[in-house]
Amino acid sequence: MNELSFFLLLSTLLFGIGLAGVLVRRNAILVLVSVELMLNAANLNFIAFWRHGAGGESAGLMFVLFSIAVAAAEAAVGLALVIAVYRRFRTAHLDRVDTLKG
């Protein structure tokens, strides 16, 4: 296996772990943790392809830098939403936050 395949496989596994966490865990904070894992898997792909000559001189790095900034903003807003939900429902468990349930 060459280096690029190794990193892409690693990133696939990381993405799969994150996807499983999003779909399976009940706690809203753990769902956000899993989303961060999936974003990091995408960043690893960017860096691996950049290293192996895709894009220009520094396009892959710039994508990752902006992606990290967006992910930081997403984490701040997402966790603020979780705190607001916790204040309203006294729980962060997604199975119990079901006011709109039909």
Partner: peptide
């Protein structure tokens, strides 16, 4: 269901 979807995608 969630675990199955994640396994299939991976």
């Amino acid at each position: 269901v969630g675990g199955g979807i994640a396994l299939a995608v991976t």
